[in-house]
Simulated assay, not measured.
Amino acid sequence: MSGIRIIQRGLYFDELEEGATYVHSPGRTVTEADNVLFTTLTMNTQSLHLDAAWSASTEFGERLVNSMFTLSTMVGLSVAQLTQGTIVANLGFSDVRFPAPVRVGDTLYAETLIAGKRLSTSRPGQGIVEFAHTMRNQNGVVVAEARRSTLMLVSPASASGPATAPGPDPVPDRNPEEEP
């Protein structure tokens, strides 16, 4: 036994490659319990998620999975590979879409494109990364998309280098404790 300890973590800012797509594994099969628990915990009493008889009369013919569960799962599937222990804060979400419904029993798969990144001008040792998340069901149908801006740590080895990137600063840094 070597005594070497390997700790699972996400990628540091400088390890993320702009333009690369990271495919997350494993997928996640949605259960009835997931939908009911998430819906009731978040006080979303929408009949489309809870009332089977009412939902049967809709164009979908059944209850649908809460879209906020879908969004949370899409981001959650990326954590172990990209941000576990290396994120400082979520700064905001944009362009959130749900082009197709998720149903109980669907298995969801996610991938993330690194849409952009830059070093922070006001927070040495940190950088801003824009993730473009996409989620598909077991049939390859896109069920969710979102862009997410995050504040990420630069690796300790690189953090002692320059704190700013050359060029303009198009997105002002935000205090991660402020509402996005």
Rank of each mutant, 00 (worst) to 15 (best):
M135H: 08
R136W: 04
R123Q: 06
S120H: 00
R147F: 13
T134C: 08
S149Y: 13
M152D: 11
V141R: 09
K117D: 02
I128V: 14
Q138G: 05
R123D: 10
V129A: 00
Q138W: 03
V142I: 13
F131N: 14
S122K: 01
E145S: 14
N137R: 03
S149D: 14
T150N: 13
G140L: 05
S120G: 10
M152T: 07
Q138D: 09
R148G: 05
R148L: 13
Q138I: 11
T150D: 07
R136S: 04
E145G: 13
R123M: 11
Q126M: 03
V129P: 14
V129M: 11
K117C: 06
R123A: 12
S149G: 14
Q126N: 08
V142C: 05
P124M: 02
T134R: 15
G125W: 05
I128A: 00
T134G: 05
A146V: 11
G125D: 01
A146W: 11
T121M: 08
G127F: 02
R123P: 02
K117S: 10
V142K: 05
G140R: 10
V143A: 01
I128S: 02
V142E: 07
R148C: 14
R123F: 03
P124F: 01
V142Y: 02
P124H: 08
P124D: 09
K117V: 11
V141H: 09
N137T: 09
G127P: 12
Q126D: 08
V129W: 02
R118Y: 08
V143I: 01
S149R: 15
L151F: 11
L119Q: 01
A146F: 10
R136G: 07
L151H: 04
S149L: 14
R148H: 15
L119D: 04
L119K: 13
H133D: 01
G140E: 06
M135P: 05
V142M: 08
M135S: 02
A146K: 01
T134V: 14
T121G: 13
H133G: 05
V141I: 14
R123K: 10
V129D: 12
P124N: 03
G127R: 04
S149I: 01
K117Y: 06
G127C: 05
T121R: 15
V143Q: 07
A144I: 12
R148T: 06
Q138V: 08
L119I: 07
E145V: 15
M152R: 05
Q138N: 04
R147Y: 13
T150F: 06
H133V: 04
K117W: 06
M152K: 09
G127T: 00
